[in-house]
Computed example of a mutant assay.
Amino acid sequence: MKAVLCESYGPPENLVVKETESLVPDIGEVIISVKASGLNFPDTLIIEGKYQFQPEMPFSPGGEVAGVIKSVGEGVPHLQVGDRVMAGTGWGGFAEEVRGKATNVFPLPDSIDFVQAAATMMTFGTSYHALVNRAQLQTGETLLVLGAAGGVGTAAIQIGKALGATVIAAASTDEKLAYCQSIGADLTINYSKEDLKEQAKALTNGKGVDVIYDPVGDRFAEPALRAIAWKGRYLVVGFAAGEIPKIPMNLPLLKGCSIVGVFWGGFFRNEPQENADNFKTIVQWLEEGKVHAQVYQQYPLEKVAEAMHELKLKKVKGKIVFVP
């Protein structure tokens, strides 16, 4: 089978596309013939040795796929060869075949195509876990989404609206903000030219924001936290802007707020049944049209470096999907 391989840490140009041996499932696993795989910001980190965990080399990046089950290992009674599925894999997805733990492989209805499903797994899995399990976002609350035009941001906007929240999208350009409004954002902040804290407070009539969804970090974290409401929940999702922020610890004290970590990879490994329950809702919402993964561009595997640079340069609105 063909696979994108990371053989040494470095930039996307170091990745190679090679023919490798077909995979054989271990106990509790399935092998999936990949029809589409989603590109996410962690993929750009894992190839440089900068992510929370590192697989043994050589490895293929790619943490979410959709496809058809090719083979089934022992101890997997609920999945069959030929089933259409979507899966969170951690890595390995930028290939024609990928190994998946059966606990994180979910049936895919015929009404949802493979590209849509591949763009859904990590972003909607992360955002649903963040907003429902971690923040317990309620109808009528306000949700501020930083990096709102990106993959997890667009998912958070739609999930926030499905849960009945007022959604404030924050991004770096007016073009991105117009895009966010087109998928449901109620209000916007351009944090490249507006004061994030002051605008967030103004848009909430001085009350502050109930829930902050932050996949960006860096210099945006502290002003966002200063705009949080009493008993608000600040979701630490990632650090796409670069630096891991250092927060003055008097702020959560004065605000009576919570700073809550969100690591979907750890969640689906430690709480597989709750993750499965989440995806039942996500798939139902996809079928009902309540949410829709925003696909920016499709690429073949051979253009992995080009696609990763598009993502790193923050040109992407929504998700890039590879189609082997």
Rank of each mutant, 00 (worst) to 15 (best):
residue 5 L to C: 05
residue 5 L to M: 04
residue 6 C to R: 01
residue 6 C to L: 13
residue 12 P to F: 00
residue 18 K to D: 01
residue 24 V to R: 09
residue 24 V to L: 07
residue 28 G to A: 08
residue 29 E to V: 11
residue 32 I to T: 06
residue 35 K to P: 03
residue 40 N to C: 00
residue 42 P to D: 04
residue 50 K to R: 15
residue 52 Q to M: 11
residue 54 Q to D: 04
residue 56 E to K: 09
residue 58 P to Y: 00
residue 64 E to Y: 04
residue 66 A to D: 01
residue 71 S to L: 05
residue 72 V to R: 09
residue 77 P to A: 03
residue 80 Q to K: 12
residue 81 V to R: 04
residue 84 R to W: 02
residue 90 G to E: 01
residue 100 G to D: 10
residue 102 A to D: 00
residue 103 T to N: 06
residue 107 P to N: 12
residue 110 D to H: 03
residue 111 S to H: 07
residue 120 T to W: 08
residue 124 F to I: 13
residue 130 A to E: 06
residue 131 L to G: 11
residue 136 Q to D: 13
residue 150 G to L: 12
residue 152 V to H: 14
residue 168 I to P: 07
residue 170 A to S: 15
residue 181 Q to T: 15
residue 195 D to V: 14
residue 216 V to E: 09
residue 223 P to Q: 03
residue 224 A to H: 03
residue 230 W to D: 15
residue 232 G to D: 15
residue 232 G to H: 08
residue 236 V to G: 08
residue 238 G to E: 02
residue 242 G to M: 15
residue 242 G to A: 12
residue 250 N to I: 14
residue 259 I to Q: 13
residue 260 V to K: 12
residue 267 F to R: 11
residue 268 F to C: 01
residue 271 E to Y: 14
residue 275 N to F: 15
residue 277 D to G: 04
residue 278 N to W: 13
residue 284 Q to P: 06
residue 292 H to E: 06
residue 296 Y to L: 11
residue 304 V to A: 02
residue 308 M to Y: 03
residue 308 M to R: 10
residue 324 P to E: 05
